[in-house]
Amino acid sequence: MKQIAVDIRDIRKSYTGIKALQGINIQINSGELFGFIGPDGAGKTSLFHILTSLVIPDSGSATVAGYDTIHDYREIRKIVGYMPGKFSLYQDLTVDENLKFFAGIFRTTIHEHFELYKDIFAQLEPFRKRKAGQLSGGMKQKLALSCALVHKPQLLFLDEPTTGVDAVSRTEFWEILQRIKYMGITVIVSTPYMDEAALCDRVALMNKGSIMAVNSPENIVRSFGKNLYAVKSEQMFPLPGLLATIEHTKAVYRSGEYIHYLNEKDDFDPVLIEIYLRACGHGMIQVHQIAPSIEDCFMVLMQQSKAQKAA
């Protein structure tokens, strides 16, 4: 039987009239690498603040490792590691001093759980006497992760750890997270990058304070309709409006240099698109079927919830 590491029940939170979270329900299993995926303003950070006991929700409740985030906040603070979105270590202390300080306040030493973060720390080794403020972005992030792991937490919360980090460091960072997961730590990550969703065991797609879907990245993609097409013509600007008028259209949105088009009907024939566009006077028409990505799922779910709200 799977153990529940985090249990979120109908959490709501507003900040001066803005609904940051509107009824979140999620169960995260122990030992999972779980991702909250969503754009800025989706409510990821608000949710992390509630789960790490920094903020009290307006209504609803949540438990972390069985502890209530409001009443047992002291227990939670002992067993979680937290890496805020903004670099929050002491810039005027050295790498060593930061690590020793955090080890000290968790009543442990740098050496006690060193095997957890020795791979990460190996890269920091040459800079141990350097002040944290003078490290590069990637190194700062590794130091923050080391400090969050120094007391061997049961759960690790990482709020947008890869935002503003270069592509190579991002890949490397996700490899590190996989390794941490295999050491038995539940890892909970938030990210605005859709491509990172595939690296999680399960993801929650978030937008405007709501969860749109929770599943493994494979299942999310699988539940997506088959008829997804990338469309392009010489007149890109009126294209989405035209496509939206086709019968049984489920979603139309721009994705890079193409317009992605999804139709509800399983027996939809893409030749229809070409005929229709040609009739409207478009030239240089390209239509080809593509495999959906998480980003496609996100866009479609977002359009659906928008349509629901309008209705």
């Binding site: 006991s53 920094l54 603070r77 805020p84 903004k86 929050s88 002491y90």
Partner: peptide, 13 residues
Amino acid sequence: ETGTIEQINVTPI
């Protein structure tokens, strides 16, 4: 201002 208090608050201090 530097945000370090956020990190400090999620510790048993």
